[in-house]
Design a binder for these strands. Structure first.
Lengths: 362, 362
DNA sequence: GTGAAAGCGCTAACAA
DNA sequence: TTGTTAGCGCTTTCAC
């Protein structure tokens, strides 16, 4: 154990235990502040601060001595004090509408899996993740969390349909990164999947396996991701020389329920349908449920391809053929690129590859 | 708008814009600190602090004047400063092994849904939720997050098998609440489900619907929850005057894979099995997969009852009959009771009711 | 390369 | 009921 300096000047103790700080330390082996470390190392607070932050100013030997002291005494720097002084929280907020209202749910399983990815991506960067629950019509959350100094920025998984909200955030100068596509006339960080390719390869696979009447069961019609997936679907059909039948296209809202009702509509419009590309795994589950309730078989009568490759697609009783999004990578990039933006102002927009995972529904 | 006092004393401005704080405020309508508010209201910082914290000391009229001023200027109190001063973070850490390693996953879907519940429960109490990713063999996380002042306590969803870790936390005096059962000789907060009843009503339902050979497919054998569910299973069997056949009991680890292998073992031991009570929905999915792969039908040949009532039980292609745990309520109580413990030291142990949800697998 | 001191924005004991 | 003042533990000029 490091020898304590005996000739140190007496320092006033503010604790109420009737003994000075050094005695307390020795009793409890508890070192609470950099000042305690400073005393043990016979240096000033500033030197400890520099050593602990790997400042280039500091002497190699001093740094190591202080760091090993800190390790020995199991010292943890006080976050609030550091954050106050630096005017940074070293914390990111994870915003998802599904955090709000009720709770995390299968409807937003995608957001949940992403939360894990972001959390993993953040750790090596020394940032923490705070859950920011947002009520659907609340517009003050950003200001609230940012101006109170609780977070330095936000990871958003809200729909790109919420253009108004996104524009507001941009105008307010709020640092954030969006899971979704960039907008042509405003510049902010994004990470998205390659939805055109996703739609294309799903459809190509269905064509390749001999399907004649391939439906498109989309997410919300005004969502850009959905438009891209639809575009990929059309591309595949055109490349195969097929006719684009508008009756083959219906929209839902990603929910299980909407999967059921949209599938019903689709089958009413096109009774001879023999395949469908669905925009989410959860909707696909609903679609399959409806198909089977009509006495038709999946995939024999109607093949189904989902989207996202959530774990429930894999674990479903009838494992779902789907388009996989690389969620862990997406989370990692969301974390890294937002921090980069906060620190340097560099705006990044990345588009991640997708892949087809063949299981039992197509 | 509130009229600005013109006779206020000049105060030094520390910003670099060449104008004093009041001018800045008027320009940008941005009020950053309680001192800004104090100036506008012609009172001292302490008064503002008291007013904003609803101190009983303060005059009703003063309080309202200050609060409306704060609202008007969209003022948010600085969290790091407040936390530093109060030596509290007003933040709880959500600890789950599934947060670590890879990411949140269906294997720990239960923990995920709980996260939502805790988050919802926390909001009205003015606390935030921080995601604390824990590596399986890391033992420093608690000290790390607590002593750095980032959280005031932890919500744990780790298995009760980790007795050693829990004991360590107790010995270190770490404030936490556990999703699970209390331990006889140490006192800490817990919230758990009524596992005996869960096991009993699941089994009773299977008996009532005419099943003769009812298997028990458990989670980890040494987990107390599993023991209780098994006890409930035995109770139901005994009440019905049935013989307890040890060959009907096998164990897994809650995972999908273990559901498959455990079901295989069970069928090898008891080929005439016609029902099984499974300790988790995810395992039940695995069990059903194996049953069907043997050419048997669910529920005709073998009835299956799961546990938890996760959304994937509801959305499964063959919706699962299961024992529902009230996850939102559990989250709410975990939040409330931990905060109560932190603030008052009161230890609570609550046991939540469960209910049978009948769907298609039994 | 290191130390002294001011300041981050807030709370709370004490004084008035 | 309100104001004054001294911290909370850290970072960061500015001197040495």
């Amino acid at each position: 154990m490091t020898k304590l300096p005996l000739d140190k000047p007496l320092s006033i103790s503010y604790n109420a235990t009737g003994c000075n700080d050094q005695e307390r330390m020795m009793m409890a082996k508890t070192v609470q502040t950099i000042e305690d470390i400073a005393r043990l190392a016979n240096v000033s607070k500033s030197t400890v601060s520099r050593a602990l932050n790997d400042s280039p100013l500091i002497n190699q030997e001093t740094r190591e001595r202080i760091q090993s002291l800190a390790r020995e005494y199991n010292f943890r720097i006080n976050a609030p004090a550091r954050n106050l002084s630096m005017r940074q929280s070293h914390t990111l907020g994870f915003v998802s509408y599904a955090c709000s209202g009720k709770n995390f749910s299968a409807e937003n399983m995608f957001g949940l899996e992403l939360l894990g990815g972001v959390s993993d991506g953040l750790r090596p960067l020394g940032y923490d993740l705070l859950v920011v629950p947002v009520e659907p019509h609340d517009t003050t959350w950003a200001h609230q969390y940012l101006n109170s100094g609780r977070v330095d920025g936000f990871v958003l998984t809200i729909s790109t349909r919420k253009q108004k909200m996104i524009n507001e955030l941009v105008n307010m100068g709020i640092p954030f990164i969006l899971w979704g596509f960039p907008q042509p006339n405003s510049s902010f960080c994004t990470v998205c999947g390659d939805d055109v390719t996703g739609g294309r390869i799903a459809t190509e696979y269905l064509i390749r396996t001999g399907r004649q009447h391939i439906g498109f069961l989309g997410g919300p019609m005004d969502e850009i991701e959905v438009k891209y997936r639809h575009h990929g679907y059309e591309l595949a059909l055109q490349n195969a020389g097929r006719y684009l039948d508008p009756d083959l296209v219906v929209y839902g809202d990603y929910s299980h329920t909407s999967g059921i009702t949209a599938m019903k509509r689709l089958l009413e419009q096109k009774p001879d349908l023999d395949a469908v590309f669905v925009n989410s795994d959860v909707m696909a589950l609903g679609a399959i449920q409806y198909i089977q309730s009509c006495g038709k078989r999946v995939p024999e009568d109607i093949a189904v391809v989902g989207y996202d490759d959530l774990l429930l697609a894999r674990y479903n009783n009838l494992p779902i053929t789907t388009i996989r999004q690389n969620i862990p990578l997406a989370g990692k990039l969301l974390a890294e690129n937002l921090i980069q933006y906060i620190q340097t102002g560099v705006v990044t927009n990345v588009n991640l590859p997708v892949e087809l995972v063949i299981r039992k529904t197509a």
